[in-house]
């Protein structure tokens, strides 16, 4: 009987490692190059998401803005924070592009069109990305050590996942709601290649 305690302890250790240790250990963490505050930009500058994360002329999504976008306002310090000053000194003045780490980067075989979702289906950015716009700090970028995918793909409390199941669920729901022939009905079940490339 006493001997079986080792099995029990092992079981507990395994459960602990699997439920508590593994989810942390599977991800590597890297800080973003600059502690950018979405909140400050949204509140003080009144910036909307698409002011910086805009579309190009052909309708493709430009993603994380490049340095010239930042420099158009921050050529010289606008405030007095140390973060801004160091950002200008490190990146703007030497013209060095910050190496941002993309939280929401989908794998190579995924085709996702921002403009179809934002412009045609009128989705809010927060519906997939969570309430990123009000965050005061950038989270560290967490990357799956094996697959290389960003942790955001699996979602988190307050932030929906971006796995295929999440896409499919949303499309099924909107298709069920939409009347036949409407855009939401079109967004229903389609071939694999509709979202893969």
């Amino acid at each position: 009987m006493r001997r079986n305690i080792f099995i029990a302890v092992g079981l507990l250790a395994g459960l602990g490692a699997g439920w508590a240790g593994f989810p942390r250990a599977i991800y590597s963490r890297r800080p973003q190059p600059v502690d950018f505050s979405h909140k400050v930009h949204a509140d003080k500058a009144g910036a909307k998401c698409e002011d910086c994360h805009g579309f190009r002329e052909d309708g493709s999504f430009a993603g994380i803005p490049t340095l010239d976008k930042c420099a158009s306002c921050h050529a010289a310090p606008m405030g007095s924070t140390a973060t801004e000053k160091s950002f200008i000194d490190t990146y703007v003045t030497p013209g060095r592009e910050p190496q941002w780490l993309s939280y929401a980067r989908q794998p190579e075989n995924v085709y996702f069109s921002h403009i179809t979702h934002v412009k045609r289906a009128q989705l809010k950015c927060a519906q997939c990305h969570g309430d990123e716009g009000s965050a005061d700090h950038l989270r560290p970028f967490e990357q799956d050590r094996v697959s290389g995918y960003s942790r955001d793909i699996w979602g988190a409390p307050g932030r929906p996942g971006m796995k295929m199941d999440d896409c499919v669920n949303c499309h099924r729901q909107s298709a069920a709601k939409g009347a036949a022939g409407t855009l939401s009905a079109q967004a229903g079940e389609r071939g694999c290649l509709d979202c893969h490339k």
């Binding site: 579309f55 002329e57 052909d58 309708g59 493709s60 085709y111 069109s113 403009i115 179809t116 412009k119 045609r120 290649l193 490339k197």
Partner: peptide
């Protein structure tokens, strides 16, 4: 099919 995606995106834009 990638060209079909591109054409759809252009139409949406």
């Amino acid at each position: 099919h990638g060209r079909y995606h591109r054409a759809k995106e252009r139409a949406a834009a």
